[in-house]
């Protein structure tokens, strides 16, 4: 499905709705990861509602573009996009993380239509994305593979094994995006285990690396379009973001990496996202 909403304003509004759903889901669940879900909302909105060719009425459409949430803990952001684009019934939103729910704490491809691969253990989604890109090349499909990683996730060795393979196989149908929100559970990435200079690392591994403001919809769309024009190598987009973006009291607060909002906090957050 092409361009449900090309308009930047409309995409910003969808990102706002994604953020509202994230807060509603997490408040009801009582646990989960608000910070990294909120920071990814604009990127995910741009992908699902403008850039990617996909069809919620035919989730297995062979020529679809594919989105892999390698930072699986941002599951609520993915679920929200799948709800708003019609893969997933919005009524499931109050079941997140509850026994028997399709909305597992981390995405399960066998439980939710539209989830391309189960993720949650960091570093693994990107390897699968590389495998999908290899398959798309083999089958001469026009599909593009989009993989969203966390910044802390780039501390996993497997990320770099996957990066090496993507460049080795010249996978110009692969775009890896890092949600660079600077915070991981134990604190600032540069304090815990420094990853900078991050874009240079990806360049050294053979990617064409772009750097953008990950909350500026125009910049996100421009970078995604630019990626299509780069041939012979995979593309990396370093998206600078703010952890907890859109909820003032969560922004840049490491505590909201893995702590859900209370009901009172949710009311406050939803007022800000009205």
């Amino acid at each position: 499905m092409r361009s449900m909403a090309n308009d930047v304003k409309e995409l910003a509004d969808i990102a706002r709705k994604i953020r509202r759903l994230i807060i509603e889901m997490l408040a009801e669940a009582g646990s989960g990861h608000p910070g990294g879900s909120l920071s990814a909302a604009d990127i995910i909105a741009a992908l699902y509602f403008s850039k990617m060719r996909h069809n919620p009425r035919d989730p297995q459409w062979l020529e679809r573009d594919r989105f892999i949430l390698s930072k699986g803990h941002a599951a609520p952001a993915l679920y929200a996009a799948l709800m708003l684009s019609g893969y997933l019934d919005e009524n499931t939103k109050l079941t997140l993380r509850k026994t028997g729910s399709p909305l597992q704490g981390h995405p399960d491809m066998r439980k939710v239509s539209g989830v391309e691969i189960s993720t949650g253990s960091l570093g693994q989604g990107i390897s699968v994305a590389v495998g999908m890109a290899l398959a798309a090349k083999m089958d001469k499909l026009n599909s593009r593979i989009y993989c969203l990683t966390g910044d802390g996730e780039c501390q996993e060795g497997q990320v770099w094994e996957a990066a090496m393979a993507a460049a080795h196989y010249k996978l110009d149908n692969l775009t890896v995006i890092t949600d660079r929100n600077h915070l991981q559970i134990d604190g600032d990435t540069e304090q815990v285990m420094a990853i900078e200079p991050l874009a240079d690392k990806w360049r050294a591994f053979g990617f064409e690396a772009l750097e953008i403001d990950g909350h500026d919809i125009s910049q996100i769309l421009a970078a995604l379009d630019r990626a299509d024009t780069i041939k012979g190598k995979p593309v990396y987009i370093l998206a600078n973001t703010v952890k907890g973006k859109g909820v003032s009291f969560m922004e840049n607060k490491v505590n909201y990496h893995g702590v859900a909002p209370t009901r009172e906090e949710a009311v406050k957050a939803l007022a800000e996202l009205a």
Binding site: M109, G123, Q124, S127, V130, G131, M132, G157, Q158, A162
Partner: peptide, 12 residues
């Protein structure tokens, strides 16, 4: 480890 992920991506 990456090999297993690549295999999963091809399988899916």
């Amino acid at each position: 480890q990456n090999m297993i992920g690549l295999a999963a991506g091809l399988a899916v």
